[in-house]
Design a protein around this nucleic acid. Structure first.
Length: 272
DNA sequence: ATGACTAGGTCACCTAGA
């Protein structure tokens, strides 16, 4: 099973990119972030025609997440509140559409668009930290359900200094500050692993390049799009890659897709 | 220290992204 995540920076501006990439990369499940469209205007028909069913949670202009799958999407859950009934903050945070999850072949897929935070001195930064704390409460409930977990999305955090091109310049700033890194590490816990780092330990691998300043041409990026998997899936993980060439297309998203290949056990036996 | 680009929305400058 190939599972992927992609911040498309507007589904309507990226529809042709998306359809081309689905055909080329053949993901079974794809989590999208920043769809930037209310549900009624989501281009569902074109995606279904490509063989993918959809689960969407969008809003006008900002945010918005979706799951696309060519395997059945089961038990779709939208927002933190789905697992945190009575949690006032989960309810509040649900105004921004950043969380969608579904079960696919027994794997719980959690697709996230973590707030950017803007600036350490801004209210948005506090919102980001509160959001991550709420994610932690959500994950406590999710873990109790005992499903293998694949948590992915645009985390807007470079966890380590090797995850950004210019750590000294951005030292402690937004997407690289200690409090947000700690808040994300608390969510990851000891059971989840950053799938990309199971296969690649070196610096120099980015998933986002700023549109400005020729960041793409200079390959000055950040690795802020992640896939975290629980222990059962770590055993079956066969590879994790960043589809960097997507960022070099005409009118690209500023993020590249990231995918993981998970064997089903039977597949591995066939290979040996 | 700031801005650069891109997208959406109300409409030609603004907010927001990261």
């Amino acid at each position: 099973m190939r599972i992927a995540t992609w911040n498309v920076n507007s589904i309507r501006s990226r529809q042709e990119h998306l359809l081309r990439w689905l055909a080329a990369a053949q993901p079974d499940v794809l989590g999208l972030q920043e769809t930037k469209v209310e549900d009624g205007l989501f281009p569902q028909a074109a995606i279904e025609a490509a063989g993918y069913e959809t689960a969407i949670s969008g809003q006008k202009s900002y945010n918005g997440v979706a799951l696309l799958s060519r395997l059945p999407l089961e038990d779709v859950r939208i927002g933190f509140a789905a697992l945190l009934p009575g949690d006032q903050e989960a309810e509040q945070l649900g105004e921004q559409k950043r969380v969608i999850s579904a079960s696919v072949e027994g794997v719980r897929i959690l697709n996230l668009y973590v707030p950017n935070g803007s600036d350490l001195k801004s209210d948005k930064y506090n919102y980001k930290l509160a959001w991550l704390n709420c994610l932690n409460r959500y994950l406590t409930v999710q873990r109790q359900q005992g499903e293998p977990l694949c948590m992915m999305g645009d985390f807007n955090i470079a966890l380590e200094d090797i995850d950004l091109a210019n750590p000294s310049r951005h030292n402690g700033g937004i997407m690289a500050s200690a409090p947000e890194r700690q808040a994300l590490r608390a969510c990851i816990g000891t059971d989840l692993e950053d799938a990309f780092r199971l296969f690649e330990t070196e610096a120099g691998h980015w998933s986002w390049w700023d549109y400005r300043s020729g960041a793409w041409d200079r390959d000055q990026g950040w690795r802020i799009d992640h896939i975290y998997i629980s222990e059962e899936l770590q055993q079956l993980a066969m590879g994790c890659m960043i589809h960097k060439s997507e960022r070099g297309e005409l009118k690209p998203s500023d993020h590249a897709p990231v995918s993981i290949d998970i064997g089903d056990g039977a597949e591995e036996e066939d290979n040996f």
